[in-house]
């Protein structure tokens, strides 16, 4: 496991390529929005380093910049300043096409609102990242079926999202996120639209993935969901307020 000192060493040497173990390294990451003349500084210099196989929750109140950070980590957006290294690649300097490629190969998204194609079957939804990866049709089908089987949905392959329950939809989304074997699984409030029983079910899936070595980064504002993670980063006003391993975080939150 990493130590805070080690992490500090990684994030405080601008320009240096991080060690292979570090999946994500951000150095002084900044993002500002121009909201009709008024500049909103959503991120004001975020330093985070995440190792391979970590299970991290990013928390914070609304307006803390956690969605902005999630968009930057997910390569859906580019920063105004600072560096973002993903798997040793300097993502913050990439073109839109390169970012699309990184999203396709390195990142598996799970969203609060599932974001499945409504008219496509579960199978086709899971195939989608492989379509953009240029995988042949047969290979796509094979891998998508395997991914659906891994989330126990092999019997719902040919159903459309509106024929599935919320939990099932989220599991389709997880299968879709994992089908390209990404470096990180990036989940944005994955249980936000689910009831508590289904939430537990989904969290169990994340738990299993993390235990098999999948790097998981989860953005949430619910402490009991964040409590599943082994490390919690709390943002406040566009800066990292605390970065703790699970034990200390639980103590702070007064959880068992």
């Amino acid at each position: 496991m990493s130590t805070t000192a080690e992490r500090r060493a990684v994030v405080s040497t601008p320009g240096a390529t991080p060690d292979k173990d570090w999946v994500i390294v951000t150095r002084g990451l900044k993002r500002e929005y121009d909201m009709g003349g008024e500049v909103v500084r959503a991120l004001r210099g975020v330093d985070i380093a995440i190792r391979r196989n970590e299970y991290v929750a990013i928390m914070g109140p609304s307006g803390s910049g956690k969605s902005t950070l999630m968009n930057l980590i997910g390569c859906l957006d580019t920063p105004n300043g600072g560096e973002y290294w993903l798997n040793g690649m300097l993502v913050s300097k990439m073109s839109d096409d390169q970012l699309a490629r990184v999203r396709n190969k390195e990142i598996g998204f799970v969203f609060q609102t599932f974001n499945l194609l409504p008219r496509a079957t579960a199978l086709h939804n899971v195939e989608l990242p492989l379509v953009y990866a240029g995988v042949s049709s047969d290979e796509r089908k094979r891998r998508a079926k395997a991914a659906l089987a891994a989330v126990q949905l092999d019997n719902r392959m040919h159903h459309r999202p509106n024929e599935l329950s919320g939990g099932q939809r989220q599991r389709v989304a997880i299968a879709r996120a994992l089908v390209n074997e990404p470096s990180i699984l990036l989940a944005d409030e994955p249980t936000g639209n689910l009831d508590s029983a289904t939430s537990t079910e989904i969290m169990k899936v994340f738990e299993e993935l993390a235990s098999t070595g999948q790097t998981v980064i989860m953005v949430t504002h619910e402490p009991d969901i964040a409590a599943h993670a082994r490390r919690v980063v709390v943002l406040r006003d566009g800066l990292v307020a605390s970065d703790d391993k699970r034990a200390t975080f639980k103590q702070q939150m007064g959880l068992p």
């Binding site: 999203r103 998204f109 974001n115 194609l117 990242p129 953009y132 390209n180």
Partner: peptide
């Protein structure tokens, strides 16, 4: 959604 899944502008 397609863009998030890795579709490039040209796709």
């Amino acid at each position: 959604i397609r863009k998030a899944m890795g579709a490039r502008a040209r796709d």
